[in-house]
Amino acid sequence: MIEQFTSVVFLTGFLASMIRMATPIVIVALGEMVTERSGIMNLGIEGIVWIGAFAGFATTILTGSYIWGFLVGGIVGILFGLIMSVVAVEFHGHQIVAGLGIWILCNGLSGLLNRSIFGISTERPTIVATLPTIPIPGLSNIPIIGETLFNQNIIVYLTILAVPLINFFFKEISWGLNIDAVGEQPRAADAAGLRVGVIRTLSACFGGFLAGIGGAYLPLALYSIYTNDISTGLGWMAIVVLVFGKWRPWGILGGALIFGAANALKWRLQNTDLPLPYQITLMLPYLVTLVMVIFFVRGGSGPSALAKPFVRSEN
């Protein structure tokens, strides 16, 4: 029994699966973190992930280029981030309603565009190969870790790099501090001369950009086809991980890895001789998330001005 869990093949596969699951969650959650720390809550990222996935997929099919795929996915994401920020900043709209509106809009739009561009066909359009992996010389030969950490595609490396970079950005760079300022005390930030609207708009666009990239990652790097089901739930998962990680990059990474690990384990438990009903193993990721939230997430309230519109003067 125990040897089933300690073999090199098992551990390699388990870690690889964990990273496959966690990468897109981290990408989307980092973007949403920037958006939320500026004071905008964009629940539309679930939809932006859908449309980003479709845009990236369609572009890569039509141009044959991964770079264009990710770029167009990101740009479409920016567009919807912009819509969100216009509602939030210009019209002081209700952000949760607007976010859900964007979700439903993108949801329908991606299915509609998929049909109108690719039609109905038994020959499902497929990307010839998923994003190639780039082994890092030397490191990729280490058993278990080498294969899973140092033989990945470019996006995984960039995501791992992005975590400390964004952390640094928020701790040390004045722009990052400004984002926190408008998310915590917009009135004080405004009085200090910061342009709250501009900062929030840019943050929402950045969040949309990463949500689009995270969406495009699914067909380009993982599944090579597009169906409406491949992106379902990624945005919501990112929001959960964001809260779980208390709006901090390392927390997000940790949360996504735990969720990825639980996910990887749920399939592997079914392959062992453990006499567990499959429904129990399927519950595992959610059970783990729940337990972690109950016991380890304390006092995690987001930015003070989250989802509160900033109105400069009340007359």
């Binding site: 098992f10 699966s17 496959r20 399939w267 392959n271």
Partner: peptide, 9 residues
């Protein structure tokens, strides 16, 4: 994911 886990096994 399930398929990959079975192939590993």
């Amino acid at each position: 994911e399930a398929t990959l886990s079975q192939i590993e096994a």
